[in-house]
Design a protein around this nucleic acid. Structure first.
Length: 440
RNA sequence: UCCCCGAUAGCUCAACGGUAGAGCGGCUGACUGUUAAUCAGUAGGUUCCAGGUUCGAAUCCUGGUCGGGGAGCCA
């Protein structure tokens, strides 16, 4: 009769000296004649299991010998402290029950190319580094939501199928929506969380967003997850304070709870430990000065005339001059979304900010104070060439009890790439969707 | 969309105009402390596709397909 697992590998030290049954997959095997070492992975951790021929039934030893990489099995035995074992504990095996014997496993414990690994992403997620990375992602999404919940935010999700372009800028994925014409996969939930903010005061949405841009860089996905808080009666200043507290709370929680995974990834945690408020702030104007003076330090970085948006090399240069995330605020309104509140001191710039992660990981947050005056918002919608009829519901939010309000969006994958120290964003989501990849 | 690069055994790669190879993995055997074990043996190929140059093409040329790196766009 099959035994259910009686212990998890992560908590194996609690069972030292006891007989347990573990259920999992074979992560490695070494045969040494009359003994077999099995490395068993159960999702919580990895442990070495030792099968001695003279200690077990002949069929148990044969079963242990026959196990292949990633075969599933139940292993019973006594937990024993042994300093020769990785992790300090091993299983002295008494029984091996094969659940399924796997044929030759494609992914070997050696170097593989990106194309091959992406083609086998459904198997690659079992590998130690991918496992650590995706656990960190899960910690980040949990930390982000729980922190906002603790601050009184209410989760208020936005639709994924939307009737028109929210910002009128990005290219959207279109799909046929019954007899109502085209629907578009949303590229932000922001306009909808503004409606929620007027109901709950503080809200956030969290879900996938879609950009049909033909981006082909290590910082872009066509489908990515974004968490977007929005607060009533909040100014640009309030927004920046919220962001630095939010980001540092997430980073500190990952440092506390996922230290082992950061170690697996060989992440240098020094820059993460410094990630505490307040974050430095520079204005767009200051950024242009800084670029003019230091552009030679970064390859491909050239001085910018006022009014041009920052490119990737400019962001890298700016981020490299600070030891923690840095806000770049008050961009020219003309290069930003139509709904951003103009600076009352200087109406040609917007009350907005991008948060740049250190170490060249780029923009992880974009946020702004939103226009709350209905007449100004109408003028902006027209000036951006958008169809006013599409935005009547959004204008209603300014007709009935309008208040100053602010919010931002954080890209989960970019934040994960930075915190985990992963070169390419594609590994920070289980199944990345990219320009040239939709399988598996 | 633009610029650059690549495709040879299951995987990682070599062969650069003259007989298509190695390491790893697989399979068979040996081994009581391995942990990307070691040793011996063994199987495994439409050199991405189509056309061209040549006595002869994995190799050179043209086109295509698939993919990688970067830019722009943005989170």
């Amino acid at each position: 009769m099959p035994l259910p697992p009686s212990a998890s590998i992560a908590a194996i030290s609690r069972h030292s000296g006891q007989a347990v049954t573990l259920a999992g997959w074979i992560a490695g095997k070494t045969e040494k004649g009359k003994l077999v070492f099995l490395r068993l992975r159960d999702g919580s951790g990895l442990i070495q299991c030792v099968v001695f021929r003279k200690n077990v039934a002949e069929e148990t030893f044969t079963a242990a010998q026959s196990l292949t990489l990633e075969s599933s099995c139940r292993i019973s035995g006594v937990v024993r402290a042994d300093e020769r074992a990785p992790g300090g504990f091993e299983i002295d095996v008494s029984n091996v029950e094969i659940v399924q014997l796997a044929p030759e496993y494609p992914i070997q414990p050696k170097e593989h190319g990106v194309e091959f690994l992406m083609e086998h992403r459904h198997l690659w997620v079992r590998s130690a580094k991918q496992h650590a990375l995706l656990r960190i992602r899960a910690e980040i999404t949990a930390a982000a939501q729980e922190w906002l919940n603790d601050q009184g935010f209410v989760r208020f999700d936005s639709p994924i199928l939307t009737p028109c372009a929210a910002e009128g800028t990005s290219n959207l994925f279109a799909t046929q929506y019954f007899d109502l014409g085209s629907a578009y996969l949303g590229q932000t939930g922001q306009l909808y969380v503004e409606a929620g903010m007027m109901s709950f005061g503080k809200v956030y949405c969290f879900g996938p967003t879609f950009r049909a841009e033909k981006s082909k860089t290590r910082r872009h996905l066509t489908e990515f997850w974004m968490i977007e808080p929005e607060m009533a009666f909040a100014t640009h200043e309030d927004n920046l304070v919220l962001q630095e507290q939010f980001v540092s709370a997430i980073v500190q929680r990952v440092l506390e709870r996922r230290a082992a995974d950061l170690a697996t990834l060989e992440r240098d945690t020094a820059t993460l430990e410094r990630c505490l408020p307040p974050f430095p702030r520079i204005t767009y104007d200051d950024a242009l000065d800084l670029i003019a003076r230091h552009h030679a330090e970064v390859e491909g970085c050239t001085p910018l005339p006022w009014g041009e948006d920052l490119g990737a090399p400019h962001e890298t240069l700016i981020a490299s001059r600070f030891d923690r995330p840095v806000f770049v605020e008050r961009f020219p309104s003309a290069i930003k979304a139509f709904y951003m509140e103009p600076d009352p001191q200087r109406p040609d710039v917007a009350l907005c900010a991008d948060l740049l992660a250190p170490e060249g990981y780029g923009e992880i947050i974009g946020g702004s104070q939103r226009i709350h005056d209905v007449a100004l918002l109408e003028r902006r919608i027209r000036a951006y060439g958008l169809n006013l009829d599409d935005y009547q519901w959004y204008l209603d939010l300014r007709r009935y009890g309008s208040v100053p309000h602010s919010g931002f969006g954080m890209g989960i994958e970019r934040a994960t790439a930075w915190i985990a120290g992963t070169h390419h964003i594609r590994e920070t989501i289980p199944f990345p969707r990219m320009l040239y990849r939709m399988y598996p």
